[in-house]
Computed example of a mutant assay.
Amino acid sequence: MMTAADDTTSLSSLRLPDGFTDVFTSRLVELDGLRLHAVTGGDGPPLLLIGGWPQTWYAWREVMPALAREHSVVAVDPRGAGLSDKPDDGYDAGTMAADLVALMAALGHDRFDVVGHDIGMWTGYALAADHPERVGRLAVVDAIIPGLTPTPSVFGPAAVNQRLWHFGFNRLTDLNEELVRGRERLFFGYQFAQKAATPDAIPAYAVDAYVEAIVADPRGLRASFAYYRALDETIAQNEQRKKTRLTLPVLAIGGARYSGALVAETMRLAADDVTGVVLDDCGHYVAEEQPARFTEVLEDFLGGRPCSRV
């Protein structure tokens, strides 16, 4: 069952591109024991956008209007994020993928293209591997995939540690919550400042929106770490998934100042048809740091055209 969002999920409190609310609607979708939030709009082939940690659907705000000109866009808050439910478990990639298959079916989309960023890349890979009949094309954005990407050494270079230290921290059972609670703006703000191409590439109002989404729900902080606490299960799943290679077209986009070519290198371990693109002057948050170039590359890929090497 699908229901329109109530006043608490209104888009009016957020800073959005001009005309955004003329195209997009905030919705709560009731599935089997789980309520997911999505922002939907546009017309054309369905396109599912899955964001990363510690973000919400809002990460796609700058690219959604352009994408909606040719696609029925669904920007989702997966379980544990934003306005979606935050149950105690189910944060492994396989369960998250099954959630989104159910969401898209409830919205009337049995087959769709997928874009996944950060941990949304984990879910996007699981969607394509576990539900190949559902996914037409897969685009993944600036991340690695646990259980697929070779595990880096714990004594790796400092630059690698700077990118990956949060994996270990976020997997702690409770100390992380005690250390971060009450300091959410400091902790999460540091993530955005360090992973973007420049410390202020993600504007303060956006960081505030992401932090407030976590703080607003007493279960939000626990849920934000739950994806990482489920990594043992996700890794075991991916070790099985990679035994069957993906045959669908895959676009792998990296920011030159963060994951770069590693995104394509990761996907070539699992897929036969991979196009890699690295965006210059861009860090981890590609859709926010370089929305115009990201949209150009993505639209070429979704349309079956050669991707611009920008």
Score class of each variant (00 low, 15 high):
Met104Asn: 03
Ala105Arg: 15
Ala105Lys: 14
Leu107Cys: 14
Gly108Cys: 03
His109Lys: 05
His109Tyr: 12
His109Gly: 03
His109Arg: 06
Arg111His: 13
Arg111Leu: 06
Phe112Lys: 08
Phe112Val: 12
Asp113Met: 03
Asp113His: 10
Val114Asn: 03
Val114Arg: 03
Val115Arg: 05
Val115Tyr: 07
Val115His: 05
Gly116Thr: 01
Gly116Met: 01
Gly116Trp: 00
Gly116Phe: 00
His117Phe: 09
His117Leu: 07
Asp118Gln: 03
Asp118Gly: 02
Ile119Thr: 09
Ile119Asp: 02
Ile119Val: 15
Gly120Phe: 02
Gly120Val: 05
Met121Val: 01
Met121Ala: 13
Trp122Pro: 00
Thr123Arg: 01
Thr123Lys: 00
Thr123Leu: 00
Gly124Ala: 03
Tyr125His: 10
Tyr125Asp: 00
Ala126Gly: 14
Ala126Leu: 09
Ala126Phe: 08
Ala128Gln: 11
Ala129Leu: 11
Ala129Lys: 13
Ala129Cys: 13
Asp130Phe: 05
Asp130Trp: 05
His131Trp: 15
Pro132Phe: 08
Pro132Ile: 06
Pro132Glu: 10
Pro132Tyr: 11
Glu133Val: 07
Glu133Cys: 12
Arg134Lys: 13
Val135Glu: 06
Val135Arg: 04
Gly136Ala: 14
Gly136His: 14
Arg137Ser: 03
Arg137Phe: 04
Leu138Asn: 02
Ala139Leu: 07
Val141Asn: 08
Asp142Arg: 00
Asp142Glu: 02
Asp142His: 00
Ala143Trp: 00
Ala143Leu: 01
Ala143Gly: 00
Ile145Arg: 06
Ile145Gln: 10
Ile145His: 10
Ile145Tyr: 06
Gly147Tyr: 03
Leu148Asp: 04
Leu148Arg: 05
Leu148Trp: 07
Thr149Pro: 04
Pro150Met: 04
Pro150Tyr: 08
Thr151Ser: 09
Thr151Asn: 07
Thr151Trp: 10
Pro152Thr: 04
Ser153Tyr: 08
Ser153Val: 05
Ser153Gln: 10
Val154Lys: 12
Gly156Arg: 14
Gly156Ile: 08
Gly156Cys: 09
Gly156Val: 11
Ala158Thr: 05
Ala158Asn: 03
Ala158Met: 05
Ala159Tyr: 04
Ala159Trp: 06
Ala159Ser: 10
Ala159Gly: 01
Ala159Leu: 02
Val160Asp: 13
Val160Gly: 06
Val160Ile: 13
Val160Lys: 11
Asn161Ala: 05
Asn161Gly: 05
Gln162Leu: 12
Gln162Glu: 15
Arg163Met: 15
Arg163Asn: 13
Arg163Tyr: 07
Arg163Ile: 13
Leu164Tyr: 02
Leu164Ala: 04
Trp165Thr: 02
Trp165Asp: 02
His166Cys: 01
His166Lys: 00
Phe167Trp: 14
Phe167Ser: 07
Asn170Gln: 09
Asn170Cys: 09
Arg171Ala: 13
Arg171His: 14
Arg171Val: 09
Arg171Phe: 07
Leu172Glu: 12
Thr173Val: 12
Thr173Met: 07
Asp174Leu: 03
Asp174Lys: 04
Leu175Gln: 12
Leu175Val: 15
Asn176Met: 10
Glu177Cys: 04
Glu177His: 11
Leu179Trp: 14
Val180Asn: 14
Val180Gln: 12
Arg181Lys: 15
Arg181Leu: 11
Arg181Cys: 09
Arg181Tyr: 10
Arg181Phe: 10
Arg181Ser: 15
Arg183Ile: 07
Arg183Met: 05
Arg183His: 15
Glu184Asp: 01
Glu184Ile: 00
Arg185Val: 10
Arg185Trp: 08
Leu186His: 15
